[in-house]
Design a protein around this nucleic acid. Structure first.
Lengths: 225, 225
DNA sequence: AATTGTATTTTTTTGTCAATAATTAATTGA
DNA sequence: TCAATTAATTATTGACAAAAAAATACAATT
């Protein structure tokens, strides 16, 4: 017998860790017996997971773990370029808070110390921390909310984002560049560097798992989902 | 006895038209008798309206019409700058579709013909049409989805957005500039002009209804919500 | 005596549950 | 291969439990 929040957290965790696979149907009755709740509260949890981007729904068929196409992955990173790029700009613009600057320098020191080969998880965690710090510093709760949702969707692509150390090294360097731009309080540069970082990450991640899909020089993105 | 979709549409309409006022509680039992449905489907509609930004929820207290603070209105327009600005950039970048160009020229002609004083509603409608066309041309369904949600939130501010003809005239001109930039296929310019337009609209709308809140030259936004 | 503050009761409203109806998917038979 | 039947699952309903809000009665204070 668990409460709704813990059921939400548990299902979310199972989706991210791929114990529940994309496309898999969630049968309400099974969830009820698993968590010791009746169908009404379970359904509420499913509605919330749907709103947060983890599930998809078909009327009279139920809820399934969201399945992302290659095209949708591009879309996610493009949306992140828009939102997080703007957030970086805003954070640079109102860099009036000393706490933000000290947070950034702290993260930069930690990033410099980290050994990507040996402790890739730590590097990834620091990257997330930076992205969160920027969203907070932008002082826009609505954009922060959207960013969380986009983060959820990014987490859904975890099957293809088991980053190599090569990719993470580039990410680490990009994060350092972002921090520099922010500390310089250069709005234009902060936004540009953030966008470049996200575009790079998207390209590399997709390239690793869908080799050849991005096309050679002069060729546009393949739009086959 | 109505179906869920029509109940959703009706409540949505009542919120936008302010028959249901911000902060007002929606009592499930009343909705049931009004629409001839039992509580479960009514609740589903409420969950959907919540996810779409029209309602807010407090556990054990229920759903209420979302109430926006001044600060939140700024946040909405800032998020729109991010999303719609990027969409304009993308639309300009892949202006390979002749249908898009012809759509734009059609809208521009209609805008040129319209008499803002006499038919302000038509001018507003054309503006919406342009924003939608751009979101479509960006070919990013996720961003389009986010844009719809931001449009909902903008609609929630309708109490303060009964635009004057002066404001709408400026909007009309901005829309023309956006169309020009898009037809020139100038990514940078398209994004910049779109952002400027949204920033202007935000400032003007807020200034009209909260005079003095924006502060004079050299002063930052007042952050009192 | 009038009024304010507080505790208690009543009412209203949301949260949960189990049973039934409607829909979709699977199976079986020709 | 297709139609009819069966099984499984979601959709809806009404009843009940729990929580919150409102109303009432009462005491304390001015």
């Amino acid at each position: 017998m668990q409460d709704k929040q813990s059921v939400y957290d548990d299902i979310r965790e199972q989706i991210i860790s791929e114990k529940l696979q994309p496309g898999q149907w969630l049968v309400e009755r099974e969830l009820c017996s698993t968590y010791g709740l009746s169908r009404t509260p379970v359904r509420e949890v499913l509605w919330k997971l749907l709103a947060d981007g983890f599930l998809e729904q078909e009327p009279n068929k139920g809820f399934a773990v969201r399945k992302l196409s290659l095209e949708q992955i591009f879309e996610i990173f493009q949306a992140r370029e828009a939102i997080e790029g703007m957030a970086a700009r805003l954070a640079a613009a109102r860099g009036d808070e000393p706490s933000f600057a000290s947070r950034l320098t702290k993260i930069r020191e930690d990033l410099a110390r980290v050994n990507v080969e040996a402790e890739i998880a730590r590097s990834v965690a620091l990257g997330r921390k930076l992205h969160r710090a920027i969203m907070e510093a932008a002082h826009n709760e609505l954009m922060a909310e959207i960013s969380v949702r986009l983060g959820n969707l990014t987490a859904l692509t975890s099957n293809i984002t088991k980053k190599s150390t090569a990719i993470e090294k580039q990410s680490r360097d990009a994060h350092c560049r972002i921090i520099d731009a922010l500390l310089e309080r250069d709005e234009e540069k902060s936004e540009r560097v953030m966008r470049d970082h996200l575009r790079d990450t998207c390209r590399q991640v997709v390239e690793q798992f869908y080799p050849g899909m991005l096309g050679g020089p002069g060729k546009q993105r393949s739009k086959t989902g």
